[in-house]
Design a protein around this nucleic acid. Structure first.
Length: 870
RNA sequence: GCGGCUGUGGCGGAACUGGUAGACGCGCUCGGCUCAAAACCGAGUUCUUUCAACAGAGUGUGGGUUCGAUUCCCUCCAGCCGCACCA
């Protein structure tokens, strides 16, 4: 009745059906047990799942199943990040509708995920392209607008003149649109922004409250937010040198201590002062144009040499009115940061010294190392000296002489805050951030419409609540470039909700990162048709206890979601700060690459590998020709080094695939997909099957008296080890513990007196099944049934470890002499340092090792080691 | 350029807050079973000393702290990642 080989095909579908029909993984929103929310980043429905998804979702599933067994009410939902450009591109190529393509992909991928046996609550499934989802997003957009969190302003964007759309920075490759290949232009467009920069300080400070986030991600976010402390300082312009209406120039600096080393001022090409000066100076106007053009290509921007143009305008040094400095337009100054104007101190800034050398400007040192005297520093200085950027002592600097950098900064700020220019303080302490507001306008069809109506008389009018959602029209075509919403014959024409006159809908849609900024909140009650969230549910279930996804979202998605959560709290849609209490960033699945003699990439399925000794050789199956084995790389279609999850699950089963992607490499690192590795996992599945079969077949026996059987010790050690390692997300170690237990059980089954120990062996098997169930859930149910277990493993509690069973009565301690291991000694497990030392001193074996040398000192770490110093 | 991470057998990796380096898996070698193969079972597998050792060396390099360092500190080397004129 029980076959000698485990038939995963039959068993996996059977158990999946049983879980499904029993609604085993559906979560009751009001479940009274302690909650645990596990979430993996939801996928974009691109067509088929890839092996990276298998790893990501296998990890989340281990945690979800473990927490359920530990008595938590677990929320483990799944959905689709379903808006985005690929659907439009597919529509263009295949002449179909983005929705058709998207929903077909969702159906395919859902079936694939189901075949993995994930413990997901599919009753909560959401797709962001569903009007029942995005209508709430539109409502929140309007609430944010009311709360002052939305703004409309003109900004520079990457414009693709062929596709007629804005491109994100990462979609511009070497200055060209990734799809059209057209040279991207910088355009000024009026766009909608979410005011994430209002939360710069808060988003930065709260990173400290996220101890369960990887240090690396927190650091990346901190750098991205880019806080700096400095001074806003207003400089008087010399009369008659400045264009009419300009009497001062305000700059931002983090180095007010180096003011005495100033040698020039510089403004961005887009600075109002530059524009005004350019009106009278054709050469300057040409230079400004050149700077703007340069900005179109990131590649040239990165390698561009510093260039400047002397406007002829002069500024008075705020510490010495008789000192006049030239005002340049410089190509490296950004209008978007600070005030778009700086003062340059070449001796203490790399960019400034590059610029000063290019434009032949003076270089004067004002900070020296503490080890030098002023005279030595002056003598050592030459214009070729690299800029001194470290902390040091001020010199050549009037009232700041002798101070260190921090003290001098303070002194300068205090001084300018006390002085005034034109009736206002000359300077003001100022904290600046690199983080900009989040531009969410996209000139695209397949996204959430921005619910705004433009009226010539009333201006910008929100779509009234009862008119939501603003749905996408379905009769659209993609045969010409540009935004189908904009050229739709009727969709954008609408009466103004205020005055009733003809008005126009906003035709931009939202960045898809908006969709993913709150889906985790929607999962807590996805059936609420009246509001985005149900407060009691969202506040109960959030934050997500464990969020799992790729490191590529370290900044964008994770920062947007942190902001969005705060914005939802501000507008009454939640009452929490941080969306994700625990974050784990998993590594990729990588694979060897293969090339044939023609230099073409060859897929793993098309080759066979022969190995002799340590050497491996590969051949094309079809032709028998040799294949070069190349480097291990991220799976990509172009290099053909992909494996398809469907193929793997078909030939090995979901449990084997899950077991393999969790084994070997630590979860945060890349795992190398290899045929040998998968076969190893498959062998283990069959080994477990045989072990359980043998153990179940042993004649029933009572409990065994006497010493604790080694298999029992191993089982209880494994309970402790596996539990701890799941909690610390070290699945590779969990798998090692389970291997050890399986080996111990095999040994017990090979022993001639196995029948006498049938009870303890079966108990160890029962424990092993519960321990590997989070990783191989189908095999676990099958084995559980064979062992006579009650109900489903999926509903069974995690086993309790008995510390007394793990304890050993005797310990073997290594004995070192002068730090080198020379022997071993057996001591009672409870021997303290003194008792152990006494045993060591009388041990004849150790006496022999000492060869008559006198003991100077004995170091005992109880339970660990003995070291004898001679 | 700035910031960060990583470096351990043939390979992936393990080693808790400094305490027996190489758990566990893959691969490989030998043996068993078999007419044979696969599967399975058993033994071995860091390097060196022609065998072996209770021999020596050994966690990228060189130094330091310590009774004791893969672990802590400093130097250098290599690889990977993030940011990139942010004043």
């Amino acid at each position: 009745m029980r076959s000698s080989r485990y038939n995963f095909r039959e068993a996996e579908t059977r158990w999946q059906k049983i879980w499904d029909e029993g609604k085993v993984f559906e979560t009751k929103t009001d479940d009274p047990r302690p909650k645990y929310y596990v979430l993996e980043m939801f996928p974009y429905p691109s067509g088929r799942i890839h092996i990276g998804h298998v790893r990501n979702y296998a990890m989340g599933d281990v945690i979800a199943r473990y927490r359920r067994a530990k008595g938590h009410a677990v929320l483990h939902p799944m959905g689709w990040d379903a808006f985005g450009m690929p659907a439009e591109n597919a529509a263009m190529e295949k002449k179909s509708h983005p929705a058709t393509w998207t929903y077909a992909n969702i159906a395919t991928m859902k079936a694939q995920l189901k075949s993995m046996g994930l413990s997901l609550d599919w009753s909560r499934e959401i797709a962001t392209c569903d009007p029942d989802y995005y209508k709430h997003q539109q409502r929140m957009f309007l609430d944010f607008l009311k709360a002052g969190l939305v703004t409309r302003k003109t900004s520079k964007v990457n414009w693709d003149p062929v596709d007629h759309t804005v491109l994100a920075n990462e979609q511009v490759i070497d200055g060209r649109g990734w799809r059209s290949g057209a040279l991207v232009q910088q355009r000024e467009l009026t766009q909608w922004f979410l005011k994430i920069s209002d939360y710069s300080e808060e988003l930065l400070a709260a990173l400290d409250d996220l101890p369960r986030w990887p240090e690396k991600v927190r650091l990346m976010q901190a750098n991205w937010i880019g806080r700096s402390e400095g001074l806003m300082l207003r400089w008087a312009l010399v009369e008659n040198t400045a264009p009419a209406g300009f009497s001062e120039l305000e700059i931002y600096t983090t180095r007010p201590d180096t003011l005495y080393g100033a040698s020039f001022m510089a403004v961005a090409a887009d600075h109002p002062l530059a524009k005004a000066a350019g009106e009278k100076d054709p050469k300057l106007a040409a230079f400004l144009e050149e700077c703007r053009r340069m900005g179109t290509s990131q590649a040239t921007l990165e390698t561009a040499e510093k260039k400047g143009y002397d406007t002829g305008i002069r500024a008075r040094h705020p510490l010495d009115p008789s000192w006049e400095l030239p005002v340049y337009v410089a190509n490296f100054i950004l209008m978007e940061y600070g005030t778009g104007a700086i003062f340059g101190c070449p001796a203490h800034d790399q960019r400034d010294i590059d610029f000063a050398r290019a434009c032949n400007l003076p270089i004067k040192p004002v900070v020296r190392p503490a080890s030098q005297s002023d005279a030595e520093a002056n003598a050592a200085f030459s214009p070729d000296t690299p800029p001194f950027l470290d902390d040091g002592i001020l010199f050549n600097s009037g009232f700041m002489n002798g101070m260190d950098v921090d003290a001098a900064k303070e002194a300068a700020i205090k001084r300018f805050e006390g002085e005034s220019l034109g009736g206002r303080p000359t300077g003001q302490r100022k904290v600046n951030f690199r983080l900009r507001d989040w531009g969410i306008s996209r000139q695209r069809y397949w996204g959430c419409p921005i619910p705004i109506i433009h009226c010539d008389d009333c201006g910008i009018v929100p779509v009234p609540n009862q008119d939501l959602p603003v749905k996408l029209p379905e009769d659209v075509t993609f045969d010409v470039p540009g935004n189908p919403l904009d050229r739709h014959p009727t969709w954008k024409h609408v009466a103004c909700p205020c005055c009733g006159k003809p008005a126009r809908r906003e035709t931009d849609t939202m960045d898809t990162f908006v969709d993913s900024s709150w889906y985790f909140a929607r999962f807590t009650d996805p059936s609420n048709s009246q509001a985005p969230t149900t407060l009691s549910a969202v506040n109960k279930w959030l934050p997500v206890d464990q969020y799992i996804g790729g490191i590529e979202h370290a900044i964008l998605h994770l920062l947007y979601s942190r902001f969005f959560t705060r914005a939802m709290t501000m507008t009454g849609h939640a009452d929490i700060k941080e969306p994700f209490a625990g974050l784990f960033t998993q590594g990729m699945v990588v694979h060897e690459t293969y090339k044939n003699v023609d230099g073409q990439w060859v897929a793993p399925a098309e080759i066979r590998i022969e190995s002799s000794g340590d050497a491996r050789k590969a051949f094309e199956i079809a032709s028998g020709r040799p294949v070069t084995i190349g480097s291990i790389e991220k799976m990509s279609k172009s290099k053909k080094n992909v494996v398809d999850p469907d193929d793997i699950i078909e030939s090995y089963g979901a449990d084997t695939a899950r077991w393999f992607v969790l084994s070997d490499s630590p979860p945060e690192r890349d795992v190398i997909w290899s045929e040998e590795g998968v076969q190893g996992a498959a062998r283990f599945v069959q080994k477990v099957w045989r072990i359980i079969g043998e153990a179940s077949a042993l004649p029933a026996a009572g409990s065994t008296a006497g010493d604790v059987h080694p298999v029992t010790k191993a089982a209880h050690r494994a309970i402790l080890g596996v539990g701890e390692d799941i909690e610390r997300i070290r699945f590779n170690r969990c798998i090692a513990h389970i291997h050890e237990l399986a080996n111990e059980i095999s040994t017990a089954l090979a022993s001639p007196d196995k029948a006498a120990h049938a009870g303890v062996i079966r108990e160890a098997c029962r424990i092993m099944v519960l321990l590997f169930a989070p990783m191989m859930p189908h095999l676990a149910e099958e084995c559980w049934r064979d062992l006579g277990g009650e109900g489903l493993v999926a509903n069974t509690d995690w086993p309790e470890a008995d510390a007394a069973l793990v304890a050993e009565s005797e310990l073997v301690l290594p004995v070192q002499i002068n730090g080198k291991k020379r022997g071993e000694i057996s001591v009672p497990a409870d021997a303290d340092a003194a008792a152990t030392e006494a045993l060591v001193r009388v041990n004849p074996m150790i006496e022999a090792l000492l060869e008559g040398r006198a003991i100077r000192k004995v170091i005992v770490v109880p339970g660990r080691i003995v070291n004898i110093v001679v």
